[in-house]
């Protein structure tokens, strides 16, 4: 900006921050491919694909669990986004009795630590025979992600407003078509943000899944954490690497799929 030299300490601070964020990722990437890394070497003496091979072994259990874990988290993410769109619409566009209470309830899970909430609801789910089932895990993940997704959708719904839909009505579009052709494309950035947010919250969950799933519902975090707890750096790092890369891949797919609806984005990329 105006005086570049005065920004120097700030720039150095940013560089240090970036280094601190990226260095551990480089280190675990190295570890994921390490066979031997004896004290006091600063680099591995010998590399191997042992860790990665174990995860993707043809008849191993890990890859199927990765897929089912991604499926579970995507289910949570989609449901969370849909419920958030509905709730945001109700709160922003309508007056109904109990609106303030609903507003509070939708944000309440943020006020209760997930450990406390998980132990409390565990007993309830046992009574409903939903403990140790994927459905139970999905429900609990969903409750935990909704405050975040509702917050995103609510802000966006407020800023888009009801005016565009009204314009669509008088031009002959039914309420459903108005939503589909006018509001939905405008809400898309928020929908993508909601889905990715809910996905990462669900996919990262360890404690809640452990408790509610009771070891019967296996997610990727559930098989990764024991290696970290044991301090097995090669396997732990291989799992962590797969965790991060699969997440980025899922995000990229969500983005591409949903952006196809949004022609505006495509066209502005051409320009």
């Amino acid at each position: 900006m105006k005086d570049i030299s005065s920004n120097k300490p700030l720039k150095i601070f940013i560089y240090i921050s970036l280094f601190v964020i990226l260095a551990p990722m480089v280190i675990i990437t190295l570890w994921a491919f390490t066979n031997q890394w004896p004290w006091p070497n600063l680099l591995p003496t010998n590399y191997s694909l042992r860790g990665i091979k174990e995860i993707f072994a043809p008849y191993g259990k890990v890859f199927p669990i990765l897929i089912s874990s991604i499926t579970l988290s995507l289910t949570v993410a989609l449901l969370s986004a849909i419920i958030a769109i509905m709730t945001a619409r109700a709160i922003v566009f309508y007056d109904f009795s109990g609106k303030e209470l609903l507003d509070f309830i939708s944000m309440a899970p943020n006020l209760v630590p997930s450990t406390v909430f998980a132990m409390g609801i565990h007993v309830v789910l046992i009574r409903m025979s939903l403990a140790n089932t994927p459905l139970g895990v999905i429900i609990v993940h969903l409750i935990y992600t909704l405050p975040y997704t509702i917050n995103i959708m609510r802000n966006l719904t407020e800023s888009i407003g009801v005016d565009m839909e009204h314009q669509a009505y008088v031009l002959g579009a039914s309420p459903w078509k108005s939503f589909l052709y006018v509001s939905f494309p405008l809400l898309l950035p928020g929908i993508i943000a909601s889905i990715t947010m809910a996905y990462i919250l669900s996919f990262s969950q360890y404690f809640v899944t452990l408790l509610i799933g009771g070891g019967k519902v296996m997610t990727f975090s559930m098989i990764m954490v024991p290696f970290i707890a044991k301090g097995d750096r090669t396997l732990g790092s291989a799992y962590a690497l797969v965790f991060v890369l699969s997440t980025l891949l899922v995000f990229a797919i969500i983005n591409t799929l949903l952006k196809k609806f949004q022609k505006r984005e495509e066209k502005s990329n051409w320009n």
Partner: peptide
């Protein structure tokens, strides 16, 4: 889901 959440917390 809200009812389930509150029920869970109260139950605890």
């Amino acid at each position: 889901l809200g009812v389930l959440f509150i029920y869970g917390v109260i139950n605890g």
